[in-house]
């Protein structure tokens, strides 16, 4: 980077140049994603162990989930990942309006995901397919089906929480895009929020077959 642009407003004093600052932010985000992967990892491991212990119960219990709603949500999240990527692509080409609308699309898709999730959850609440000791449903064979629903609600719940956080972050990006904070020279917040959003997508890519499509 040339010296003429060493003091842009976004450069913090303890970095030598904008490139170092962007690198640091991205590295930090990746390390944060590592912590996210291991947080979800604990739940995936609980899932793996209980499924290995109770294969029949998992098989019977997963039928209570609606696979087409899960598939719909998978498509929705993949599309939102695409729009997120395209918003960054647009900013790289200084098409700021386009960035804004792609971000808007991402938020709407994420909201769609949550709405579908809401219908799934309320259906299960209604049937008494609740986690732990609040489980009252009697139509599932096998020992301790409440554990399946504990795991289901914890995994999708933690994932849903991440979707909500993502929505908040993307709205914040929309505001900053509108205010003209970003350009093809500086769009690090877009990039690192994008990383976060793709990770949320990636986790759902595993949750969907593991919870909805047990053979």
């Amino acid at each position: 980077m040339s010296n003429a642009e060493t003091h842009p407003t976004y450069l913090q004093h303890h970095f030598a140049d904008a490139e170092q600052q962007m690198d640091a932010a991205k590295t930090g985000m990746w390390v944060f994603l590592l912590t996210e992967i291991l947080t979800f990892g604990g739940l995936f491991i609980a899932y793996a162990i209980y499924r290995a212990w109770n294969p029949e119960m998992f098989h019977f219990a997963h039928k209570a989930l609606n696979a087409s709603m899960g598939a719909l949500n998978t498509i929705v999240l993949i599309t939102s990942s695409l729009t997120m990527a395209l918003s960054i692509w647009s900013m790289q080409h200084d098409k700021k309006k386009q960035t804004f609308w792609y971000l808007m699309a991402t938020v709407l898709l994420a909201a769609t995901f949550m709405v579908v999730k809401y219908f799934e959850y309320s259906h299960k609440f209604h049937l008494g397919q609740l986690p732990g000791k609040y489980y009252t449903y009697t139509g599932i064979e096998g020992a301790n089906p409440h554990i399946f629903f504990s795991i289901y609600f914890m995994m999708t719940g933690l994932h849903g929480l991440h979707v909500l956080i993502g929505i908040g972050l993307i709205i914040w990006l929309m505001v900053r895009t509108k205010k003209g904070h970003f350009s093809s020279k500086y769009y690090t917040p877009l990039e690192i929020t994008g990383l976060f959003w793709h990770l949320v997508d990636m986790i759902w890519i595993f949750l969907f077959p593991l919870l909805y499509l047990i053979g």
Binding site: D23, T27, W30, L34, I37, L38, F44, I45, A48, I49
Partner: peptide, 23 residues
């Protein structure tokens, strides 16, 4: 940069260790 790939792989490595040794 390859360092990001290294970080990502590290996460997968630790997760695998956790899963395999627990199982």
């Amino acid at each position: 940069k390859k360092i990001y790939l290294v970080i990502f792989s590290t996460a997968m490595l630790f997760l695998t260790i956790f899963l395999v040794l627990t199982m």
